[in-house]
């Protein structure tokens, strides 16, 4: 701590119901991945440290239990898939071994039963000719297929929660759609709760029930997807939504630009709104204290002093429909 600390995530709270899907949205280095890694207790220590807070999973505080207990939860109750499937798979093991090992470990199956189950899983995630591909190595699979294998591995122990960290960022759009449809199908089929970490606002709109918007490690706004998109209350959310080009709107619609640079987490003022330096709605009070979460509606909270609804409507940034 001699060099000063970097608050990657600062006082973030959210909840997730059984079978629900939640998106953590934000730009790079906003702490969205770190917050998910904390749930898995996968923050490398040192230098990372969870300074405070609780992570309650099924009524149990994950920060208080032993590493041994955590190991059982990881991969068993909570599973995770990552952005780069090619680096998450062991290149020298066949697909059936990779899947089989976690089945043997977590579900106590013997080798032949594990292989049979691996085959079922591959079929479930839609890998064509699954029987033939069982003994293939990861490099013989395309990126999309590798991610399917990762999903199969994540599902192998029937987890209650699946965390997907930018699951489709490195994958082509048409394949991306396939994968997200698959994840969505599995959620309705098995009732797995899902946290999707992404910067893609389109994916959020299509697949997710509730949204958490993060900026510089802090929660800016959270609420049901439809509400967030229709009546965003935080200037950052409004700016974000207005800064992406949309296929369905006329091209004459101007993009609104969030001016300035992404925040430097080391230099962030700790007692002010993190978005203040880039905010065009800022008022005097923003320079005096830090806003706390305020309720805007059913499950809809935001951290801002300014009621920006009128202004943003008149600028055409939000539709203003109720």
């Amino acid at each position: 701590m001699a060099e000063g600390e970097l608050r990657a995530v600062d006082g973030l709270s959210y909840y997730l119901r059984k079978g629900e899907s939640l998106a953590i949205v934000g730009e790079s280095a906003c702490g969205k991945s770190v917050s998910a890694m904390s749930v898995m207790r996968l923050i490398p220590y040192p230098p990372g440290i969870i300074v405070g807070g609780e992570i309650i999973f099924k009524g149990q505080n994950l920060l208080k239990i032993s590493e041994e207990e955590m190991r059982h939860i990881r991969g068993g109750q909570i599973a995770m898939i990552f952005q780069e499937p090619s680096t998450s798979l062991n290149p020298v093991l066949t697909i059936s071994r990779q899947l089989g090992e976690s089945l043997e470990l977590h579900r106590g199956l013997d080798k032949s039963a594990a292989t049979a189950e691996a085959l079922n899983l591959l079929k479930l995630v839609g890998i064509p000719d699954a029987e033939k591909r069982l003994n293939d190595y990861p490099h013989q699979f395309s990126g999309g297929m590798q991610q399917r294998v990762m999903i199969a591995m994540a599902l192998s122990c029937n987890p209650a929660l699946l965390i997907a960290d930018e699951p489709t960022t490195s994958i082509d759009v048409t394949v991306q759609a396939q994968l997200l449809e698959l994840i969505d199908k599995l959620r309705s089929q098995f009732g797995t709760a899902i946290i999707i970490i992404t910067h893609n606002l389109g994916i959020v709109a299509r697949y997710v029930d509730r949204v958490v918007v993060m900026y510089a490690g802090q929660l800016m706004e959270t609420g049901p997807t439809d509400v967030i998109y229709a009546e965003p209350r935080h200037p950052y959310t409004i700016g974000l939504l207005a800064s992406v080009p949309r296929l369905d709107l006329p091209r004459s619609r101007k993009l609104s630009v969030i001016e300035g640079l992404p925040p430097n987490l080391i230099r962030l003022a700790k007692d002010r709104c993190a978005f203040l330096p880039r905010c065009k709605y800022a008022i005097g009070r923003c320079n005096e204290e830090k806003p706390v979460l305020e309720k805007a509606g059913e499950e809809h909270y935001f951290a801002c002093f300014v009621d920006v609804r009128k202004q943003s409507e008149s600028e055409g940034l939000t539709s203003g429909k109720r």
């Binding site: 064509p128 395309s142 999309g144 297929m145 082509d172 759009v173 048409t174 394949v175 991306q176 759609a177 396939q178 449809e181 893609n200 606002l201 389109g202 994916i203 959020v204 709109a205 299509r206 697949y207 997807t225 439809d226 998109y229 229709a230 939504l241 992406v244 949309r246 296929l247 369905d248």
Partner: peptide, 27 residues
Amino acid sequence: QALLSAVPIPDPVVDRQRKRILLYGDV
């Protein structure tokens, strides 16, 4: 058509009304 439909529109209300065409397999 498939490419367009694979791109979700960042507006849940609009996106729900779109026809989805899912392509199979990889390039």
